[in-house]
Nucleic acid binder design. Structure first.
Length: 882
RNA sequence: GGGAGCAUAGCUCAGUUGGUUCAGAGCGUCUGCCUUACAAGCAGAGGGUCGGGGGUUCGACUCCCUCUGCUCCCACCA
């Protein structure tokens, strides 16, 4: 079959992916083989593929394909996450663009829109993963809001409620005024933000609500909250302010009288030492308020606007109010000064809105016991984090975790299965029917229509923490005592999880908790934490910067294999990935290299009568040994999750060893056929190489594997067994490397002296050269070798060392004798210095007695080698009469 | 404010219990080549006091201290 000069991925990728699907090669069912299980970190259902997904899923696919070729029953479960806040805000925005406000819709109407949106965009990212070559078991695709998965989430809630882990209460939570929901601590990102530090004068009251001329100064970043002040607080030890004890002060602008209280929380040397206490709008102030029994005056509404309790600036946005109140305070004489100030401000991870600490009624999950077990799972090594450094971070988080706020004031998600009776009592049950049964126990006269379900939904992570369980068995979550179904029993725990460190706590830690709770076993053995994909300048990829390439365009341009390779080449676990398109180019080039190597071999005709040449025989022997050595190295890299090292090892093995050396050695003379022995060996090697490359580059390897021999329908490289490392003779490999050294040196001499490769040269080799390797030098360096113990020759010659063997190329008339002598003398000097250093070491009593025998022996070998080199250099110099 | 990590060639990174002739790889660069698979290629070459300083050791890229620079995580000083 005639092959084009360049590999064309577009022609092959869709074809083979369809073939794989058609034959259900990705599908897994429990059987007697050892399972290898991976669950995908479910991307947001309405998301589109970005470079982070490419990295993650390429790594996953490599692991899965490798395991499959190792004969394991590999199962990679794909799916998507409903991503409640992200999806809901997208739907809200879309409706808004159509002139529809969420508030004008009923819950049911809104959800109808949301589902419509989900149906429209839901499959996109999964189809994009197919383009990448991901070998997911698509028959097992799950969505975190599939009815049975949602049921599992509800059961889990009920389970923890009944266990006493879930409670409801008014707490200061992180309020997102744009997303209009509470968010968990983990969803708040603190960023240093420059703002103003306002120094405000609070006048002392005369006792009747009138200002005296005395005042104190407080410093605040949030002057718009002064109307919610409940007290002024000083440190009891602060003598500067003892005169304030028992006094009352007036809030500026509204002249409301508030007490001065004392609490050691106040730092005397920060700000002015006076703190305004605003229990409704600051976590610490809230705590102080509780200690001192202060009223809570909430003046900010859900949208972040001042409400009527503020008395002034009602309806203004908090930031607008801040600007305006600054002006008002200035005019009223209450503003002493304004300083620039940088402090950490919390932003919503999802909407980027400034988080408003807000008191509200929320549901919480107690974390203490769960975290303890989850910490133990990692500390004991039951779950391994790769790289290991994340253990510290993990431990720190686990030891300081606070209760998890699991309610969200959203509609898209699993609605909390809590039902309120008319009197406000609450029952928790998996459905309305069961809720009614429970309600009747409390109040026998209650009717179904009297019950009102909590309108909030659960945090998305409250569903995704069940993922490794619920994708297999939706009944087990919430029912630790239930028998796992066949799938769960077989596939759980999964083997490896590939994900980003940014969701170590959001997701990984919580999956471990859920696994321990419901399965009494961890959900995975290894967690491979990738880096974050950045551009080549080290910047995070973002839409606003426009520095994120579109993976699909890259695939179109370079092929999926090229993109996968480009991604893998620069990815070591845990390090951030600096992605550059040139790496994808390198991937494409490698495809082309493989393609052309195949074209060469494919074009050979066997000549049954031809005898195997010496060079080919040596090459086949060497390459067979080298193959085993490389397989061993690659296997070692895999076992340590060093996937980019495994890839690079194979890359060099193919490009350098196979193409540059092996193929050049066995290549028949122009117009001649190849002997059958060498041909068969070459095909065998090529077959092994394709299998080794396949996990990284599935498409091109399938294309060539299918092409290299007649295949039956239903055969595929992806189900072939990965070649196993056999024994090898290290001496053969080392000898071959010596021959290569000689070839390189002679090529260098040719280039230096301007000699054509076609001109056969004489070469003299000294004692120690592996004579069996001479055919290599003869063929690739075009030389006629001769032996001479010293490796020197009478008359003009260029000499060089290969290991400890001296070699010379006699070149009458082309050698500058002085130059050659100078070179030899320099070499001699260097060698003598080296020898002296070695001997210094060896004459050091402490070294000889202290260092391990092996090291000392090595030094003695260095000494001997050095001596023999010096000898041959001297011999060469002697030939010049020196 | 607390904690962790990183710093090796122009770039991105290996260097796995301190010891092989160990200072490496890939890419880029330079030089010469359209040599009958591949110019998306072939052949060759150059390039680093392993961030600075100190210490431990017979021996340090590797261990300890310190300084400098960067990154990340956690955190309620208004």
């Amino acid at each position: 079959m005639e092959l084009s000069a360049k590999y064309n991925p577009a022609e092959t990728e869709d074809k083979w992916y369809a073939y794989w699907l058609e034959h259900k090669f990705f599908h897994s069912e429990p059987d007697s083989r050892e399972p290898y299980t991976v669950v995908i970190p479910p991307p947001n259902v309405t998301g589109i593929l970005h470079m982070g997904h490419v990295l993650n899923n390429t790594l996953n696919d490599v692991l899965v394909r490798k395991a499959r070729m190792d004969g394991k029953n590999a199962c990679w479960v794909p799916g998507t996450d409903h991503a409640s806040i992200a999806t809901e805000s997208k739907v809200v925005a879309k409706l808004k663009a159509e002139g529809i406000e969420k508030e004008s819709l009923t819950r049911e109407e809104f959800l109808a829109h949301a589902w419509e949106w989900k149906e429209k965009h839901g499959g996109i990212i999964l189809n994009q993963l197919r383009k990448l070559g991901a070998s997911c078991d698509w028959d097992r695709t799950r969505f975190t809001m599939d009815p049975d998965l949602s049921e599992a989430v509800i059961n889990t809630f009920v389970y923890f409620y009944e266990k006493g882990y879930i409670y409801r209460g008014v707490r200061m939570v992180n309020w997102d005024p744009v997303g209009l929901t509470a968010v968990s601590d983990e969803e708040v990102i603190h960023r240093d933000t420059t703002s103003k530090f306002y120094h405000l004068r609070y006048f002392i009251s005369d006792g009747n609500g009138n200002p005296t001329d005395k005042y104190l100064v407080i410093a605040t970043t949030r002057p718009e909250t002064i109307m919610a002040d409940a007290a002024i607080c000083i440190n009891p030890a602060d003598e500067r302010y003892h005169w304030l004890k028992g006094k009352k002060v007036l809030i500026p602008l509204i002249n409301k009288e508030i007490p001065v209280i004392e609490d050691s929380y106040v730092e005397m040397d920060f700000g002015t030492g006076c703190l305004k206490v605003t229990p409704a709008h600051d976590v610490n102030d809230y705590e102080i308020g509780i200690r001192h029994n202060l009223p809570v005056i909430d003046i900010i509404d859900n949208h972040g606007r001042l409400n009527e309790k503020a008395q002034i600036l009602v309806g203004e946005d908090r930031f607008e109010a801040r600007r305006k109140i600054e002006q008002m305070l200035q005019e009223s004489g209450n503003l002493e000064k304004v300083e620039a100030y940088t402090s950490p401000v919390g932003y919503s991870e999802r909407t980027n809105a400034v988080i408003e600490p807000k008191l509200s009624m929320q549901w919480f999950l107690k974390m203490e016991d769960l975290a303890k077990d989850a910490l133990e799972s990692v500390e004991s090594g039951k779950v391994k984090l790769i790289p290991d450094k994340y253990r510290n971070t993990y431990r720190h988080w686990m030891e300081n975790v606070r209760d998890w706020c699991i309610s969200r004031q959203l509609w898209w998600g699993q609605q909390i299965p809590a039902y309120y009776l008319p009197d406000g009592k609450v029952v928790v049950a998996p459905n309305a029917q069961k809720a009614l049964e429970k309600a009747l126990e409390i109040n026998p006269s209650v009717k179904a229509e009297d019950l009102r379900q909590d309108p909030d939904v659960l945090d998305t992570w409250f569903s995704s923490w069940l993922w490794p369980i619920s994708v297999f068995d939706t009944n087990k979550a919430g029912h630790p005592d239930a028998e796992p179904n066949r799938d769960l029993a077989y596939y759980y725990p999964t083997n490896d999880l590939v994900t980003g460190p940014d969701i170590l706590f959001f997701w990984v830690a919580r999956m471990i908790m859920a696994g321990n709770e419901f399965m009494n076993d961890v959900p995975f053995r290894n967690v491979y934490l990738t880096g974050i994909v950045r551009d080549k300048l080290g910047r995070k990829m973002s839409k606003t910067l426009g520095n994120s390439p579109d993976p699909l365009k890259l695939i179109e341009q370079y092929g999926a294999d090229g993109v996968r390779l480009g991604m893998l080449l620069c990815s070591s676990a845990g390090n951030d990935i600096l992605f550059d398109e040139s790496q994808v180019e390198q991937g494409r080039n490698f495809c082309n290299k493989i393609w052309n190597a195949y074209r060469l071999v494919n074009g050979w005709n066997t000549d049954e009568s031809a005898k195997q040449s010496e060079a080919a025989a040596v090459a086949v022997q060497w390459f067979g040994n080298k193959l085993n050595a490389v397989l061993e190295t690659v296997e070692d890299h895999y076992s340590k999750f060093r996937l980019s090292d495994a890839l690079m090892t194979i890359y060099k093995f193919f490009w350098d060893d196979f193409c540059a050396w092996y193929l050049e050695l066995v290549k028949p003379a122009y117009g001649c056929g190849i002997d059958p022995v060498t041909y068969d060996a070459t095909l065998k090697f090529f077959d092994a190489l394709l299998k080794m490359i396949h996990p990284f580059m599935p498409f091109i390897t399938e294309e060539l594997w299918q092409n290299m021999a007649p295949r039956k329908e239903g055969e595929t490289i992806m189900l072939q067994r990965m070649p196993l490392a056999g024994t090898y003779d290290a001496k053969v490999i080392a000898d071959f490397e010596m021959a290569c050294g000689a070839v390189v040196a002679i090529r260098g001499i040719r280039q230096q002296k301007g000699l054509s490769p076609k001109e056969t040269l004489d070469v003299v080799y000294g004692q120690g050269f592996p004579e069996g390797m001479l055919p290599v030098v003869v063929k690739l360096a075009n030389v006629k070798p001769q032996f001479n113990a010293a490796g020197t020759v009478e008359g003009s010659a260029v000499s060089f060392m290969v290991g400890t063997v001296k070699m010379s190329v006699p070149l009458t008339g082309l050698v500058d004798e002085q130059e050659e002598i100078a070179k030899l003398e320099a070499e001699l000097k260097h060698q003598e210095e080296f020898l002296a250093a070695v001997r210094r070491k060896l004459s050091n009593e402490k070294f000889v007695s202290g260092a391990p025998e092996k090291v000392v022996a090595m030094e003695r070998k260095k000494e001997a080698d050095s001596l023999s080199k010096i000898e041959s250099i001297q011999a060469a110099l002697a030939s010049y009469g020196k």
